[in-house]
């Protein structure tokens, strides 16, 4: 079982978290086309390599956070998110 670093609780068993899958943008519900909306609902990139993911610390602090996971090696790293400098560690995430 993977150890997933919650920015608040530290490394947690993946089973103690909820996996919310590949990170994706929600289209504007007023203007989107059915294709855009259903792409948001059902279609994922599923790359072989680095993937930005959503996790929820459901059995811990209840924080939603994003993390990058390498789908081949299982390696995890803090993502570069807007407003955060590259190379920031998990401890810097909030």
């Amino acid at each position: 079982m993977l150890l997933v670093p919650c920015p608040h609780c530290g490394p947690m068993n993946a089973g103690d978290l909820t996996y919310n899958g590949e990170s994706h943008r929600r289209p504007d519900p007023k203007t989107c086309t059915p294709k855009e909306w259903r792409t948001y609902l059902y279609l994922r990139e599923n790359p072989s390599g680095w993937l930005l993911e959503n996790w929820y610390c459901s059995s811990g602090c209840r924080k939603h956070f994003k993390i990058e996971r390498h789908t081949l090696t299982g390696e995890l790293r803090a993502p570069v998110l807007p407003g955060r400098k590259p190379g920031a560690t998990q401890g810097d995430m909030k």
Partner: peptide
Amino acid sequence: RIQAATARA
């Protein structure tokens, strides 16, 4: 490393 990565430790 685990301790350093745990904000509340």
